[in-house]
Amino acid sequence: LRLEVKLGQGCFGEVWMGTWNGTTRVAIKTLKPGTMSPEAFLQEAQVMKKLRHEKLVQLYAVVSEEPIYIVTEYMSKGSLLDFLKGETGKYLRLPQLVDMAAQIASGMAYVERMNYVHRDLRAANILVGENLVCKVADFGLARLIEDNEYTARQGAKFPIKWTAPEAALYGRFTIKSDVWSFGILLTELTTKGRVPYPGMVNREVLDQVERGYRMPCPPECPESLHDLMCQCWRKEPEERPTFEYLQAFL
């Protein structure tokens, strides 16, 4: 395994491009020591290896001592969030954005069929390849993070704006909380990567959403798509659509 080009840095580690087995181009995620327990990670990795779908980033291998390494397929255009905010983002029109959403829903419909939960679905965790191919990455890892700023769910590192209220408040993460996050991801797509709930801080978002506030229809977004977002944001988790439905609708 060779680490060649550093692609990015996040709160919990770095991402590199490299070569595996001398020939395969891969992405390598390294986790800061202390982010998660190697034992817990190894268990999760076994499950992650079983998830194989064309719209999920394929896991190739893991190094399960500290520092933990995760070796996955390489996606040339990086994260969907950076892609939307970058040069190419300007030229993306609604049909392409909807197609990308459908690809993500397709990957998540598979996660749904496998009775698995992602827990951290957002544009930053979707990767883009050639020809606007989108794949879901980092599934299941969020559960293992041991950082206090994260586990408190009120901490600075927790993605509260993407998280369903029952998950943020009571830790009830299910495929239905993933559906909520998918609704937020749809706003990221239609606004080219704007942060959700602009002008609001995490605490406010939690309070307002509890009181029934939902983001309005983004500019140039059809009402039918906003309606779909609002279905994803129904207060009762069981009233939210399935990913199978979302995939078919898109």
Score class of each variant (00 low, 15 high):
R2D: 08
V5W: 15
K6A: 15
G8A: 04
Q9E: 15
G10Y: 00
G10W: 01
C11P: 00
C11S: 05
F12V: 01
E14Q: 15
E14A: 05
V15M: 03
V15Y: 01
M17R: 14
G18V: 03
G18T: 09
G18Y: 12
N21Q: 10
N21V: 13
G22F: 14
G22H: 11
G22W: 14
T23Y: 14
R25A: 09
R25D: 10
R25S: 11
V26I: 06
V26S: 12
I28V: 13
T30E: 06
L31P: 15
K32G: 03
P33F: 14
P33W: 14
G34L: 10
T35A: 12
S37Y: 05
P38Y: 12
P38L: 07
P38I: 08
P38N: 15
Q43C: 07
Q43S: 06
Q43Y: 15
Q43T: 06
A45T: 03
Q46Y: 10
V47P: 00
V47Y: 04
M48L: 07
K50A: 12
K50S: 11
L51G: 03
L51T: 04
L51M: 06
R52K: 09
R52G: 14
L56P: 04
L56K: 06
L56F: 04
V57C: 10
Q58D: 15
Q58T: 15
Y60D: 06
Y60G: 11
A61S: 08
V62L: 12
E66K: 15
E66A: 14
I70L: 08
Y74R: 15
M75T: 04
G78E: 04
L81Y: 15
L84H: 03
K85N: 11
K85I: 12
T88I: 11
G89V: 10
Y91D: 12
L94I: 07
Q96S: 11
L97V: 09
L97E: 06
V98I: 11
V98G: 07
D99T: 14
M100V: 09
A101V: 12
A102C: 07
Q103K: 15
A105Q: 01
A105M: 07
G107S: 05
M108D: 00
M108A: 15
M108H: 09
V111A: 03
R113P: 03
N115Y: 12
N115A: 06
N115R: 14
N115E: 05
Y116C: 13
V117E: 00
D120P: 02
R122C: 02
R122S: 01
N125I: 02
V128D: 02
E130M: 12
L132I: 09
L132Q: 08
V133A: 11
V133N: 08
C134M: 09
A137S: 06
A137V: 02
D138S: 00
F139A: 01
F139M: 04
G140M: 00
L144P: 14
L144V: 10
L144F: 11
I145S: 04
E146P: 10
D147I: 06
E149R: 03
E149Q: 10
Y150N: 03
T151F: 13
T151A: 06
A152W: 04
R153W: 06
Q154Y: 11
G155T: 05
F158L: 05
F158G: 00
P159F: 02
I160N: 00
I160K: 01
I160H: 01
W162E: 02
T163K: 01
T163F: 01
A164N: 01
A164H: 01
P165G: 11
P165V: 10
A168G: 15
Y170P: 03
G171F: 12
G171H: 10
R172S: 13
T174Y: 15
I175L: 15
I175H: 15
I175S: 15
I175K: 15
I175F: 07
K176D: 12
D178K: 00
D178N: 00
D178V: 02
W180F: 11
S181N: 01
S181I: 01
F182D: 02
F182L: 11
I184S: 03
I184W: 00
L185N: 04
L185C: 08
L185W: 14
L186F: 08
T187V: 10
T187D: 08
E188S: 02
K192A: 08
G193S: 06
R194P: 00
P196N: 03
M200T: 07
V201W: 09
R203I: 07
E204L: 08
Q208R: 13
Q208E: 12
E210L: 06
R211N: 04
R211F: 11
G212C: 06
G212D: 08
G212E: 06
Y213M: 09
Y213W: 07
P219V: 11
P219H: 12
E220G: 10
C221A: 08
C221R: 04
P222F: 07
P222N: 05
L225F: 14
L225S: 06
H226E: 09
M229R: 01
M229Q: 09
C230W: 10
C230V: 09
C232N: 12
W233V: 05
R234S: 13
E236Q: 14
E236A: 12
E236G: 11
E238L: 12
R240N: 00
R240A: 01
T242Y: 14
F243N: 11
F243P: 15
L250V: 07
